[in-house]
């Protein structure tokens, strides 16, 4: 068959070369994105694994100069802080996200959306200062509660916006089906819409929790830190991140090593948290 528009051969070569160059660049960029994570894992594991033993998870920190000891208080402290933050942040985030997507097509909704976006861009240390002013100063002392509140403030925008976006993805036809069955609107929202969007919302919650678990700055002047065993939410509490900060900047070799172990423990904690959360929120049917 005769070609209607005879093409010059070099065009094909040009295209093939361009294709090869761009593909190589994309591949390189993809590699660059995984490099930092590989390094993080490599360093935390290689430097932290030697101190990772039963003592680390069961004993309290030792005074300077004494070797051994663990960070059980900080592990429990971080869990308590995440629990307080999540306990406040998750319900507020889900409910405000639901409000925004289902009822927020008004000026108030636009205002809330704008404020959430700004809030998510506020540096975490500023949130810490605010929590210090609002909670620590009136209570006259540092506390786990203040730290939890600071973490909740950091979580709320993530959870709110993910919830809103996920709910928006739920097809209108499910809501209509609910309405046509004579189901009250609030039940449609909770039992059909939220349930359908739940998987995406759970991802948002997990993102919020993980981010909060890794925060240090807002905890420095809210939950402060504690070298002793404490589970009292009205008292200062230890946390892994604050320990990492203090131990890695201290002039003692064994403290520096323990900081690496604390970092490894934090990564493990977040991984376990994600896993447990995924199992709990797993639904029987895919949406």
């Amino acid at each position: 068959m005769e070609m209607k528009f005879p093409m010059k051969k070099f065009i094909f070569y040009k295209r093939r070369t361009a294709n090869f160059v761009m593909l190589s660049l994309s591949l390189l960029a993809a590699l660059i994105t995984i490099v930092p994570l590989v390094f993080i894992f490599y360093y935390t594991i290689s430097k932290g694994i030697s101190n990772l033993n039963i003592d680390f998870f069961t004993k309290l920190p030792t005074p300077v100069g004494e070797t051994g000891g663990g960070m059980v208080n900080a592990i429990v402290g971080t869990i308590i802080l995440i629990a307080i933050g999540g306990g406040i942040g998750i319900p507020v985030g889900i409910m405000s996200g639901t409000y925004l997507s289902e009822f927020g097509k008004n000026k108030f909704g636009i205002l809330v959306r704008f404020f959430t976006d700004v809030l998510s861009g506020i540096p975490s240390i500023v949130v810490g200062v605010v929590a210090y002013t609002l909670v620590v100063i009136p209570m006259k002392h540092f506390s786990a509660l203040a730290g939890g509140i600071a973490l909740a403030i950091l979580m709320i925008p993530t959870i709110t916006r993910t919830t809103e976006e996920m709910i928006k993805l739920v097809p209108q036809s499910y809501r209509e089906a609910g309405l046509a069955l004579g189901i009250p609107k609030w039940k449609i929202t909770v039992m059909i819409v939220l349930k359908t969007a739940w998987k995406g919302i759970a991802t948002g919650i997990l993102l919020g929790l993980s981010r909060a678990a890794g925060e240090t700055a807002p905890l420095l002047f809210t939950s402060l830190g504690n070298r002793f065993w404490s589970t009292d939410i009205f008292q200062p509490i230890a946390s892994l991140t604050v320990y990492i900060y203090q131990y890695s900047t201290a002039p003692f070799k064994d403290w520096n090593d323990q900081a690496w172990t604390a970092a490894l423990a934090l990564i493990l904690l977040i991984s376990v948290l994600s896993l447990v959360f995924r199992i709990i929120t797993r639904s029987k049917y895919k949406a």
Binding site: A177, A180, L181, G182, K195, T196, Y285
Partner: peptide, 16 residues
């Protein structure tokens, strides 16, 4: 709507 039911153009069973 409990007394007047409705069936839609596109089947929309609840997937969950």
């Amino acid at each position: 709507r409990r007394r007047i039911g409705m069936v839609f153009q596109k089947p929309n069973p609840f997937p969950t």
